[in-house]
Design a binder for these strands. Structure first.
Length: 256
DNA sequence: ATGCCCGCTTACAGCGGA
């Protein structure tokens, strides 16, 4: 069972690339982030024609997440619990083929310090609480998404280049590690323990041709899911296409 | 030190992204 996470950076701008990638890699579940459209405007019929069911939690202009699946999915959570005033569409969760799968778009948090960084850390605290409730169910679960956290210094081409960025502040990393201590396994890290794997390359300053990237798209596996881990990686070549997203898809394969 | 590039919006400039 192949589960992937892809920050597409705009549905309208990226639909051809999305369809190509689905056809080429045929994930069983695709968690999308930054769909940047309201739910009603997501191209459900086109995605259905490509062989995928759609669950969509959209938002106008920014954010927005979706879960595409070859098998029917049952929605289990829309929006991250813990703050009724939070109107940003950054969390969607469903059960697919017996596995609980979440599509996560964690706040960027820049500039830091500041209210956006506070929101990021508060959101991560809420995620920590909800993730604990998922572990308590004992169901195999996968938290897949754009975490906007560079976990380690070997997850970026140059730690100095992003030293003051919200993505690699100690508070961000500590909160991410808190999920690991809770019992979640970073699938790509487990398969590639030496690091050096990137999932994002900035549009600016020739970051892609220079391979100046970092890893912020992660799939966290519950113990029951981690026991079934076969392989994990990043579809790097997707980043090299015309009109590509600035993210490449990250994926994990679980034994059925 | 700043902007580079990209996608979005009751758009033709400004914001958010990372």
């Amino acid at each position: 069972m192949r589960i992937a996470s892809f920050n597409i950076n705009g549905t309208n701008a990226r639909l051809p690339r999305l369809l190509e990638w689905l056809a080429e890699t045929q994930p069983d579940v695709a968690c999308l982030q930054e769909i940047k459209t309201v739910t009603e405007n997501f191209p459900v019929e086109t995605i259905n024609a490509a062989g995928y069911h759609c669950l969509v939690h959209g938002q106008k202009g920014f954010n927005g997440v979706a879960i595409l699946s070859r098998a029917p999915a049952t929605e289990t959570q829309r929006g991250l619990p813990g703050d009724d005033a939070d109107e940003q569409s950054r969390y969607l969760e469903a059960e697919v083929e017996g596995v609980r799968v979440a599509s996560i778009y964690l706040p960027n948090g820049n500039p830091q310090p500041g209210p956006k960084f506070d929101y990021k850390l508060a959101w991560m605290a809420r995620l920590h609480a909800h993730a604990a409730s998922l572990l308590a169910t004992g169901q195999p679960s996968v938290l897949a998404g754009d975490y906007n956290v560079i976990p380690n210094d070997d997850d970026i081409w140059s730690p100095a280049a992003m030293r003051d960025d919200a993505l690699m502040q100690p508070e961000s990393r500590t909160a991410y590690r808190g999920l690991l201590w809770q019992g979640w396994t970073d699938a790509i890290r487990a398969v590639h323990p030496r690091g050096g794997i990137w999932s994002y390359w900035d549009y600016q300053a020739g970051a892609w041709p220079r391979d100046q990237g970092f890893r912020i798209d992660h799939l966290l596996l519950s113990p029951g899911a981690a026991d079934r881990l076969v392989d994990a990686g990043v579809d790097r070549s997707v980043r090299g296409a015309e009109r590509a997203s600035d993210h490449a898809p990250a994926w994990a394969v679980l034994r059925r």
